[in-house]
């Protein structure tokens, strides 16, 4: 649904469901030059008490940003995004993100939307986020 003004607080954004695999983790580690072994070395990940290699926090943030940007469809921009990973997400598991608009403020140069986002893995929350979006006028 496009972000015109026929929505109000409580409007749902998403969901976005995806299953990052080893190639996704590899590419993200490569482009960010992140050599932290828990993202590609399963033995190391297991030794640290993790269930498998785990999705980078940064990549999770990008998935959230992607969902928000897809909803904006170029009609606005993400001004701020904060997220927290509360439980590590192993590779090859479906991650489902969904947002909700919590408030809308109208300003002379556009509307400011505040959104809350949850990321779920097997139905349980593994990440939460708050975003500020600006819709142009």
């Amino acid at each position: 649904m496009t972000p015109n003004r026929d929505f109000s607080a409580g409007h749902i954004i998403g969901p976005l469901a995806l299953t990052p695999g080893p190639a996704d983790l590899f590419m993200f580690s490569a482009v960010t030059w992140n050599r932290h072994q828990i993202h590609y070395n399963k033995d190391r990940a297991l030794a640290e008490g993790l269930p498998d290699v785990v999705v980078q926090r940064g990549l999770i943030g990008n998935y959230i940003a992607r969902m928000l940007a897809a909803w904006l469809k170029g009609a606005g921009r993400i001004e701020a995004l904060s997220w927290r990973v509360v439980k590590s997400a192993p590779v090859n598991r479906e991650l489902v993100f969904q947002g909700i608009i919590s408030s809308i403020e109208s300003h002379s140069n556009g509307d400011i939307l505040r959104c809350s986002v949850e990321g779920r893995l097997a139905g349980e929350i593994f990440a939460t986020a708050e975003a500020t979006l600006r819709l142009g006028r």
Partner: peptide, 13 residues
């Protein structure tokens, strides 16, 4: 010796 990412907060001016 073990690290994990906890939270991240970005602004995009």
């Amino acid at each position: 010796s073990r690290a994990v990412g906890g939270s991240s907060s970005f602004e995009f001016p």
